[in-house]
Design a protein around this nucleic acid. Structure first.
Lengths: 334, 334
DNA sequence: ACCCTATTTGAAACCGGTTGCAAGAATATT
DNA sequence: AATATTCTTGCAACCGGTTTCAAATAGGGT
């Protein structure tokens, strides 16, 4: 185990060729006589040679690492996306290296800098708040893709999902179940996702000829706690509603708890639809009807897209569809 | 932005010294004339010099990266630990680089190999299943610490928490609330955590003079689904119980759902205590009484311990205490 | 056969640092 | 004042690869 590191020089000597030749068969970017190539491969095999990634990185300029900018490890949805990225990279020669931006443009900037200083070959940004203008300048310096976020002008480098349509679907499901007075708990308004979902909610109402009642939409921040606060405030204001579309599952949980506290039955008195389908949602009481996003596939697709991009290959992303998972938190009325 | 990379050579020329001298002030490991040192620092400042991590790694042997072996990104508890590790490293010059072992010793081995090939300066293992014997051989080759796992013979390199005592506490809380027939849903028996918690459960019963009833303990696998199955099987067997101590919160959620399905009220008919205090637990209906583990602090402590270890410094880990979070899922009876 | 072109190949420079060694300068010893 | 000792410092080798360039070899055409 602890025996001397074997290097390209060892292989060269063992195969009776020069370092250059070994390097060439390693990268097979230059034709090499078949006989020698086999000799080299044999030597590598026999000596159990593993090229030194660091040296390779220094000499060749590429580090075989992909920088991943996350925003908040610990959030179920983004974690899954991140997991997908790791998965997508796992069978390649690239390793991911992470930095966390905490949804703060300033921190994001410095995190990106850290990653670039580490000489990453490509960048994957999972979500993020950094204004597009800041990214534009980086765009040409490194191959990069953005996942779980849609940015104007970056269309072919964004892997994401149609939040508007999905939110519209979810809201329509409530409408089709007979609900008219549907509240919406919105996520952080600074996040495009939150705005998109709100737009989908509005679109569904509009299409069904239901007037938008501003009193029914209340701002949250994607946390469970903000979900309970939202319901409290609705109740406080005395507005009546029979359905709630929450901007994510966490807030749906909060909403559900607030109702439990008030003795409001779910779904008999009020129906709830969430967004994200995080693992626990199937185990809420009652199990939560919610929008499933293909979080992991998105992450994987991002990894593949980046790889393809770096190799100048064409990449057609897989279909990334959301799906309304119907469980038991919606009651048909009228 | 895109201007030429400035290297140590540029600094040397600009400050009228040799590369060696620059390197020396950079690492300040050799005395350097104060005058020159200032000149060098000034030049670095002026030219905005950032040493090339890769070159440094190749030459000096240390890569300024820490390998983190995770087991399953996406699990709330381990995610938090991982987050703590990232946090603990964030103000240092080290960057974490990840590999996932999926709780599979074979994959773990190859993941560790990948990390070592990348020349990491240290290793943090978050949980894991790899037998201690396999780790022993690595032990001397790289500084490493293990977090969220206790391994015999590694005491001073394990950052973890007393699962047995915490589980005993939790069970005692049920006992003190008047419960005698307490079921236990156990996690994956191959995980030390699961076994420890089971032992704590047994210890609590023993101390209170309650005989252990094997029929009351059922094996799960830490997933919510296994929680519902556990309750189903208990009910099927017809054993009666008024309390449940689940090996983690996920299984507690499953248990709670199973009871909801059967019309068993929580906590009026059956009380539940979980383990982990994951974010959603406060929003279960009713809010779940559970054991909180200082997951993030553990991760941070692991990072600090490793750093200290690498510098041959002494490190006293912070107190890492579990705490029973009393909420509303336990009913006092009798 | 002979000359020209295409293919393989090795030597050497390079990537950006670190470090052993010895020379030169500065300080201490007798 | 001469010599011994200690500090500083630069040179050059080295870390383990990649890549340019030119030499060597092979193949093709007439």
């Amino acid at each position: 185990m602890a025996r001397k590191k074997i290097t390209i020089k060892d292989i060269a000597e063992s195969a009776n060729v020069s370092k250059s030749t070994v390097s060439r068969v390693l990268n097979n970017n230059t034709p090499v006589n078949e006989e020698k190539r086999l000799a080299v491969l044999e030597a590598m095999e026999r000596l159990n040679y593993k090229p030194n990634v660091v040296a390779r990185s220094l000499a060749g300029g590429n580090s075989m690492t992909i920088g991943v900018l996350t925003q908040n490890i610990g959030s179920p949805f983004y974690d899954k996306v991140t997991q997908g990225v790791i998965q997508g990279l796992s069978d390649t020669d690239y390793s991911p290296i992470f930095a966390d931006g905490r949804w703060d443009p300033e921190i994001e900037t410095s995190a990106i800098k850290t990653l670039i200083d580490r000489n990453v070959d490509g960048l994957i940004m999972v979500g993020g708040n950094l204004p597009g203008s800041d990214l534009d300048s980086l765009r040409d310096s490194k191959p990069m893709v953005i996942v779980a976020r849609r940015l104007p002008g970056w269309d072919n480098k964004c892997i994401s999902v149609d939040n508007v349509a999905a939110a519209k679907d979810a809201t329509e499901y409530l409408i089709n179940s007979g609900h008219r007075k549907i509240a919406h708990i919105m996520g952080i308004p600074e996040h495009q996702d939150a705005r998109d979902r709100y737009m989908g909610y509005q679109a569904a109402l509009r299409d069904s000829g239901i007037a938008l009642d501003e009193d029914l939409v209340v701002k949250g921040n994607f946390s469970s706690q903000s979900g309970v606060l939202a319901i409290e405030s609705l109740l406080m204001k005395g507005v009546s509603f029979t359905g709630v579309f929450a901007g994510n599952d966490e807030m749906a949980f909060g909403a559900r708890l607030a109702m439990y506290r008030r003795g409001i039955r779910v779904p008999e008195d009020v129906s709830i639809v969430g967004y994200d389908d995080q693992p626990n949602s199937a185990f809420m009481t009652p199990p939560l009807t919610t929008v499933a996003q293909p979080a992991e596939p998105m992450g994987e697709a991002a990894a593949q897209a980046l790889l393809a991009f770096m190799r100048n290959q064409e990449f057609v992303p897989p279909r990334l569809d959301t799906e309304l998972i119907v469980r038991e938190s919606v009651h048909r009325i009228r």
